[in-house]
């Protein structure tokens, strides 16, 4: 297994002054360390306010960490263009993440224009490829965000992320806002992309069922720290920390009720 990402002692401190005389409220994230191998899926679970989204943003480069390092290990032989971005992020509400005044084509086009040195023809070719990859049609090039269904928006969001040939995709609750059938389609699409492109996938979710189904490893976060980490089936079968036990038990209590009925 080739290692593609090495996160070491990543931390971020956010302090906000709430009043003139009150002490500032501080949230400390990390230090967080973990590695990732090619094609791996890592799930981050934990309660609200545990710092999961913040972790995702720091990983994707949207927020500069206070200390620590994120290292990508690229193999020399790969033919990836050097200017491609190794980590791309998908936001939770893909519907509101796209500029409503631009068509999907121009959004993708701009992304390429700003981030790569491809010429016009190459850009068009790349867009065509990417649309096909995520299961959209050539015509969706001309679609604005309001013209697309939930499922298509999700695919468009994936297209935006994938067009720069990332090695890793980070997603914040990618399934939470989706209806069951669109959710299954998205899960399948991600599995397929991982299989085809060897993508690493880091996602935050509170849906333990999906975490169990698609992730290889799980990180449990609480108060800005990773409190438990390990192979998904091991952590879910034998959670060590109280918080993990709670999360897992409450999920399985729901599943058990189903099992008792059928």
């Amino acid at each position: 297994m080739t290692k593609i990402l090495c996160v070491k002692d990543l931390s971020y401190t956010n302090s906000r002054k709430t009043g003139l005389f009150s002490a500032p409220r501080t949230f400390v994230l990390g230090p967080i360390s973990f590695d990732m191998v090619k094609g791996e899926t890592i799930a981050i679970i934990g309660n609200n306010g545990a710092g999961k989204s913040l972790t995702a943003k720091v990983l994707a480069g949207a927020i500069r960490p206070s200390s620590g390092s994120i290292t990508f290990i690229t193999d020399e032989t790969s033919q990836q263009s050097s200017h491609s971005h190794p980590i791309r992020m998908i936001l939770q509400h893909s519907s509101s993440a796209m500029n409503p005044a631009l068509s999907l084509g121009s959004v993708l086009h701009n992304t390429l224009k700003l981030n790569t040195r491809l010429d016009e023809a190459q850009r068009q070719e790349k867009i065509k490829e990417t649309l096909k990859l995520v299961g959209l049609l050539r015509d969706h090039y001309y679609y604005y965000s309001h013209m697309m269904s939930d499922g298509q928006q999700q695919r468009a969001a994936l297209a935006r992320a994938l067009i720069l040939d990332p090695k890793i995709i980070v997603a914040d609750e990618p399934f939470a806002a989706l209806d069951p059938s669109v959710r299954s389609q998205t899960v399948n699409l991600i599995l397929k992309l991982q299989h085809e492109l060897g993508l690493g996938f880091v996602f935050i979710s509170h849906n333990i069922g999906i975490v169990r189904h698609i992730s290889d490893r799980v990180l449990v976060m609480d108060k800005g720290q990773i409190i438990e980490a390990g192979r998904t089936e091991e952590v879910l079968a034998d959670p060590k920390e109280v918080l993990t036990q709670k999360l897992v038990q409450s999920h399985f209590s729901l599943v058990e009720r189903h099992a008792s009925l059928v």
Partner: peptide, 20 residues
Amino acid sequence: PSFQSALKTKSPLTALSGTI
């Protein structure tokens, strides 16, 4: 996925194609 105990992890989920 939690309803199907026999489901292999990472296997594709059965889903209707298209959307409502």
